[in-house]
């Protein structure tokens, strides 16, 4: 069965980069969100298995999304894909329960090793 996946980033290019970096065999049903609030609306109303989450976004940033996911106990895997690569930011993201922290720009190599590690491909 296809995995419901949410790609959340304010940049169209970045959202496309995620799609392009996934293996062709990856069986998923994609939805996209352009900011944190849009992402939460989807996460609260539907079952999402995996979220690719940007951090620096308008309306509500990725940290805000992670906080709500944690507080409300929303059940999903989150892989953060961020331009902000400071070690302190990675620490915060991991403490909030993200599965992984990937530096932008994302590519096949970075994504495949994470997905393999967690048995998602």
């Amino acid at each position: 069965m296809a995995l419901p996946v949410l790609i959340c980033d304010d940049s169209l290019l970045a959202r496309k980069q995620v799609r392009k970096s996934l293996p062709e065999s990856f069986d998923a049903e994609f939805q996209t969100a352009g900011n944190g609030l849009e992402a939460l609306a989807i996460l609260r109303s539907q079952e999402i298995g995996l979220v690719f989450l940007d951090l620096t976004m308008p309306e509500l940033d990725g940290i805000g999304v992670l906080e709500v996911i944690k507080a409300e106990g929303i059940d999903c895997f989150v892989i953060v894909i961020s331009a902000d690569i400071q070690p302190e930011m990675k620490k915060r993201v991991m403490e909030l329960g993200a599965l992984a922290f990937i530096h932008k720009p994302v590519n096949e190599e970075k994504l495949h090793s994470i997905l393999k590690q967690y048995g998602l491909i």
Binding site: S11, L12, L13, T56, A83, D84, I85, Q86, H103, K104
Partner: peptide, 15 residues
Amino acid sequence: DCLQEIINVAMGLAS
């Protein structure tokens, strides 16, 4: 959008 994203990534490195 493309230029903005490239700049965001570059700015992340600089920060």
